[in-house]
Every structure is written in C-alpha cells, then in structure tokens.
C-alpha cells in the first residue's frame, strides 16, 4: 500500500521540487517559482475570481458532456444493433470525426456567438464520438450465446436490451465516457481562449496577454488538478460499475 502510494507520487514530487529550483536559473517571466504561483493562486482564490472561472468552466463542460452522452448512448445502441443504419451513417461520421474539432471552432463562434451557447455546442460536438463509438462497439460485442440464452427464457425486445445488451456493453460505454470527459475539458479551454469572457481558458489567455504570468500558471495548475480529480472519480465509478469483471482484463477504448 505504502509502496503503491510512493510509486504514484514520487515522480510528481520530483517535478514539483524541480519547479522550486529551476526558476532560479531562468527568467521569472517564463517560469515563476512554485511559491510565487501558489501565492498568486491564494490571492485569486480569496478574491473569488478563481472560483468563478472554475465554476463556469466546469458547468459548461459538464452540461455539454451530458448532452452528448444522452445522444451518444441511445444512438450508439441503435447503430450497433442495426447494421444497415450504421452502414449509411458511418461515412458521414468518419468525415466529421477526422475533421479537427478546433478547426470547427470558428464555425460555432460565427453561428452561435461568443456566449455560452457556442461552448455547449462545441463540447457536445467534440465529446460525442468517443462515447458513441464505444457504445457501438460494446453493443456489437454482446455475446450471442448470452442473447440466445436470454431469448430461450422468452425475453422481450425491451428486456433483451435492458438486461443483456446494455449491461454487456457497459464497460465499453464507460471507457468511452471517460475519454469524452477528458476531451470536454481540453476543448472547452480551447474555446474559451478563442472567445469568452469567463472560464479557465479565458483566464489563462487573459493573464498571458497582461503579462501576469504567475496568475496564468494558477489557471494551468487548476486545470491539471481538476483533470486529475475528474479522471480518478470516473475510474472509481468505472471500477464500481464493472466490479463483475475479472481484474486485469481491460477493454480498449
């Protein structure tokens, strides 16, 4: 247990120590010492500014993610089950998926303005594919023996989906959802940098332009911490919901 904590934290600790030492040798403009950054962070937190940016970002990321999930899971189940529908949709989907999300950003800003609407839209757009693709894969991977077995007990179609297909696709869906959650934060920051008045992305960009570099690092550090917390919460959720799986057998995503 202690060894496990050690393994997970030692490299991060070394990097933090480096952050304490290295700034002595470079211009404080590029990398202010960790202490200065933390002090700036304290100030921003005390004034409530940091909190407002964090809340704005989290709220939008979460809402966009929820919208895409509500679309992706049912759509993925349909596409995974009805092969013909997928054959029609797949080419469109491939084009969309392989077009950089950031390239689409100006389009969203142009149409929906720099308010929250464009942010919700871009996050929904960006986080749809991982959950959708994984749901499709999960449904396709449903074991035909299990389906047959359930059918032998006269299960109806709704029951078959609810009791067999969705549970068996669950590990895939969750892995996709975790990817989507990560993407939601990345894309949101990009969107906020290009056009916004609040949010962590705006904050980072704004302080860069104002040459208030410690404050800029506060924003970056906050993002790193939020990202890690979100990810570990989702890993815990995933482990709990798939506790029926033999440990050490993962699904790709």
């Amino acid at each position: 247990m202690i060894y496990k904590v050690f393994k997970k934290s030692v490299v991060i600790a070394v990097l933090l120590v480096l952050w304490l030492i290295v700034p002595n040798f470079v211009h404080s403009m590029f990398l202010p010492p960790l202490g200065t950054v933390l002090k700036a962070g304290g100030g921003l937190a005390a004034s409530g500014e940091l909190w407002m940016h964090v809340c704005t970002s989290l709220k939008i990321a979460f809402a966009g993610l929820m919208i895409s999930t509500v679309i992706a899971i049912p759509l993925g189940i349909i596409l995974g089950w009805f092969k013909t529908v997928e054959d029609y949709i797949d080419p469109v989907f491939q084009v969309v998926r392989n077009t950089s999300i950031l390239a689409m950003l100006p389009v969203f800003l142009l149409v929906l303005g720099i308010g929250d609407a464009s942010k919700y839209a871009i996050i929904t757009w960006a986080t749809l594919p991982p959950t959708l693709i994984n749901t499709i894969q999960g449904v396709k991977n449903a074991d035909p023996v299990l389906i047959r077995s359930a059918k032998s007990m006269s299960i109806g179609n709704i029951g078959l989906f609810a009791k067999v297909i969705i549970p068996s696709a669950m590990p895939f869906i969750l892995a996709g959802f975790r990817l989507s959650a990560g993407i939601s934060l990345i894309v949101l920051v990009g969107a906020e940098m290009l056009g916004a008045r609040y949010g962590l992305g705006f904050m980072i960009f704004n302080y860069m332009h104002a040459y208030m570099i410690p404050n800029m690092y506060v924003g970056i550090l906050s993002l790193a911490i939020i990202g890690m917390i979100v990810n570990s919460l989702l890993v815990m959720l995933e482990n709990y919901l798939t506790r029926w799986r033999e440990k050490g057998v993962g699904v790709g995503a």
């Binding site: 047959r148 077995s149 032998s152 006269s154 067999v164 029926w244």
Partner: peptide, 16 residues
C-alpha cells in the same frame, strides 16, 4: 417457459 436450456458455454450473465 415450458423449456429451459443449459448450454455448454454456461451462458451465465457475467455482470450478475
């Protein structure tokens, strides 16, 4: 429901 089948591959639901 007159018949119950038991298959070689067990076919137990792993999530239950």
């Amino acid at each position: 429901l007159h018949t119950g089948i038991i298959m070689q591959a067990y076919a137990l639901f792993p999530w239950r």
